[in-house]
Design a protein around this nucleic acid. Structure first.
Length: 114
DNA sequence: CCATTGACGCAGG
DNA sequence: ACCTGCGCCAATG
């Protein structure tokens, strides 16, 4: 079982997104200290061990869209999980104005130890 | 070692 | 709103 140090930073950052809020891939990369590596966030999420319970469904594209192809199984699952926590999903996308997570940096610094 | 691959982002047109 | 190209870079084969 190989270990993924960079991916772990991503996982822990995503774990801090509150229920009912969403973040973007780029935002998570920045907060995790990996600016410009939005693509890697998606990769890391696929590697996340299930027992960690990473709320991957709270991560969206910079325009609020669900990254999976519209209509795909994954897209439906993500939309479902979001609606379960009262996040509105219309046309495969979320209104970021309304649901974007605006973390308190002090708290973030406390919760993430890097 | 070299090439390809992404659950991306952004600037243009 | 839709499309195209380019930058990005760890991981994979």
């Amino acid at each position: 079982m190989p270990t993924h140090p960079l991916a772990e930073r991503i996982w822990h950052t995503v774990l801090v997104i509150p229920k009912g809020k969403v973040a973007t891939y780029g935002q998570i990369a920045d907060l995790a200290g990996l600016p410009g590596r939005a693509r890697y966030v998606s990769k890391a999420l696929t590697l996340a061990p299930p027992d960690l319970q990473v709320p991957w469904h709270r991560v969206l594209r910079s325009n609020g869209q669900i990254a999976f192809i519209a209509g795909s199984e994954n897209a439906h699952l993500q939309a479902h999980l979001l609606r379960e926590e009262v996040v509105e999903v219309l046309k495969n996308k979320v209104n970021l104005k309304q649901y974007i997570w605006q973390p308190d940096l002090g708290e973030l610094l406390f919760k993430l130890k890097f």
